[in-house]
Amino acid sequence: MAPALSSLTPTHGPDALAAHPPSLGEVSDYIALLKPRVMSLVVFTALVGMVVAHSAVHPVIAFASLIMIAIGAGASGALNMWWDADIDALMTRTRKRPIPDGRVRPDEALAFGSILAAGSVLALGLIANWLAASFLAFTIFFYVAVYSMWLKRSTAQNIVIGGAAGAFPPMIGEAAVSGTVSLETFVLFLIIFLWTPPHFWALALVKSSDYARAGVPMMPNVAGADATRLQILLYTLVLAPCGVAPLFLGFGGWVYAMVSIIGGFAMIALSVQVLRLRTGEPAIRAAQHLFGFSILYLFSLFAALLAEHGLGLMRPLGWHV
C-alpha cells in the first residue's frame, strides 16, 4: 500500500519550509477567495432580515453581527474555492480564480477559510446569541459540505437544494437582533430559495459547455436545454406570487407592491421568452436577459423592504390577511 502523502511531507523543520514555499498571494487574492460579490448580497439580505425584525437591539451589536455574517459568508466562499479548484480550472468563468491560477495554494485557502468560519461563528455567538451563531454554522456547513462537496457534482438538483444556503442570511440577520426567527424572514428565505433555480439555470443555459467540460451535472447538461427552459418558467411562476406574499403578511407596503408586482410580471415575461426562443443568438440573449434581470429583481425586492422598514417609507396597503 502506498504511504499516505502526509507521511511523506515534512510538517516541521527545514524540510517543511522546502516543501511549502513562501506564498505568492497578494492581499487582493485573499479578498477574491471571499467572493466579495456573494458576500455583499449576503450582507444586504441579512441587513433586510434585521430591519424587518424591528428589534430594539443596540446598533453596534447589529453592525458587529453583520460583519460576522459577512465573514462567515466569505469563509464559505474560500472553502468552496478550495474544494472546487479542480473544476474551476476547467471553466472559463472560474479559471482565473486564485487557486486554479496558482496564486494561492489549496492548503492556504483551506486554513484561511476554516479559521474565518470558526472565528465568525464564535464571535457571532458571543456578540449576538447562539441561535444566530448556530444558523451561521449550519449555513457554512450546508454550502461547503452539502452543496459543494456532495450535491454540486452528483445531481442536477444541485442548485435547487444548495440554494438554501444562499437563502438563510435574512433569517440569520433576524436571529442575531431578535433571538428568534419569524414567518416574515421565512418568506424572505422562500423568495431567495425559489429565485435561485431560474437565476442559475439561465446562466447554465449560456455556459452549458463550460459545465459539461468540468463534469458538473447542471440541468441543461442532464435534462437538456428545453426541459431546463420549462423548469425555469415553472419556478418563476411559483416565485412571482411568493414575491408578493409580504403584501398579504403586512410587511410590504406601496413601494414593495409596485416593485414585486411589476418585477414578478417581468420575470415571467422573460422566462416565457427563454422558453420561446430556443436556438441561436436570440436564445442566448433571452437567457442573458433573464439572468441579468433576475439580479435586479431580487435586489429591488429587498431594497424596497429596506426603504420601507429602514427609512420609514412604509405605507401599508391594508391587504394583510
Binding site: P14, L17, A18, P21, P22, S23, L24, G25, E26, V27
Partner: peptide
C-alpha cells in the same frame, strides 16, 4: 551535518518580499 535552511530554501525574491509585507 544538517544543512541550514538557507541552503535548501531559495531566498525570497523582491516581489515575494513585497507581497509578504503587504499581507
Amino acid at each position: 551535518r544538517v544543512s541550514p535552511v538557507r541552503d535548501r530554501v531559495p531566498a525570497p525574491t523582491p516581489e515575494e518580499l513585497k507581497r509578504r509585507r503587504s499581507r
